[in-house]
Simulated scan of single mutants.
Amino acid sequence: MKSSTAVISLLSAAAPLASAWGDLGHQAIAYVAQDFLSSETKSWAQDILSDTSTSYLANYATWADTFKYTSAGSFSKPYHYIDANDNPPSSCSVDYDRDCDGGGCVVAAISNYTGIMQSDSSSTDQNQALKFLIHFFGDIHQPLHDEALEVGGNDIDVKYSGSSTNLHHIWDTNMPEQYAGGYSLSDARAWATELTQSIKSGDYSDQSDDWLDGMDIDDPKDSAMTWASDSNSYVCTSVFSESQSQIEKDMDLAGDYYDQALPVIQVQFAKAGYRLGAWLNLIATGSTS
């Protein structure tokens, strides 16, 4: 991981990597995806997951974060991010050959588990692959999961509403939970309903078709790279925008920074859910809708 004096000049003790978007975000994204699944895809997914509840995707949205800390799942830890070795805020970019090392990354993981879903793999393998995809679509849309700087912001100490935390964590958890007013499954469902309405007939209705540009089920790696590059661009424009480039140690980011970041969080939740729904439709039926 490299640092940039243009952005910060501080390091904290190494901290555990956070979960992209936290439970609330991953569940909200899964609910948005559910809202855009065809009836055929819904039945297909419910059969694979053995879950016919109204939260059949959302119930497994955080499974991968629990699994990675087990002995059986430790191999999957690098699959939650891609370390873009770029130079924010002056330049942002993701390069697969440069940034996806031998241990794997979220782009390779989406490609791999998509292939398993399209194959004649066992029901157990398909169950696991689907749960990974539900989660990794959330991960790849969190800008700091597409960035190497200071371990994706984990090593940047800040405060949020007076509490000590780090930059990665406030994007994952503090800011989404502030907007939602909680972190329960019902909070995630309420936020997803709002986002789905925005996609269908609200603020995102005139741009959502563009979110599927570059989506090719026969080339999942390039598709995922498109999403990673899109998310990474916000590292320069929002996470470390010119107005926010001097993030100082223990700075409290619950005010203006939150106000500037919230629209990005909203649109990234919406993109992740809409793209996940379209991707699962493609796998199950060959059509995005």
Rank of each mutant, 00 (worst) to 15 (best):
A228V: 05
D250Y: 07
S241E: 06
E242Q: 13
S233G: 13
M251V: 12
Q244S: 14
L262I: 08
L253H: 03
V235W: 10
D256F: 03
V235P: 10
S245D: 12
V267H: 06
A228Q: 05
L253K: 02
Q268I: 03
Y258C: 00
Q260K: 10
D256W: 05
D256L: 09
Q268Y: 04
I265K: 08
D230A: 15
D252I: 03
L262D: 02
M251D: 14
V267A: 03
C236V: 11
Y257A: 06
Y257G: 05
C236Q: 07
D230H: 15
D250G: 01
S229F: 09
I265P: 08
V267Q: 11
S229I: 05
E248Q: 13
D230K: 13
D256M: 02
D230T: 12
F240M: 08
D256H: 05
T237L: 09
S233V: 10
S245V: 06
S238F: 07
Y234S: 10
D252M: 05
G255M: 08
S229R: 08
V267I: 14
V239H: 02
A254V: 06
Q260A: 12
A261L: 01
S233N: 14
Y257D: 06
P263C: 04
S229K: 12
L253Q: 04
Q266A: 01
L262R: 05
S238T: 15
T237S: 15
Y257P: 04
L262V: 10
L262A: 04
K249Q: 12
A254Y: 13
D252T: 01
Q268L: 07
F240L: 09
I265C: 09
S241T: 02
M251N: 12
I247G: 00
G255D: 14
Q244H: 15
D252G: 03
M251K: 15
L253I: 06
I265L: 15
D230V: 11
S238M: 09
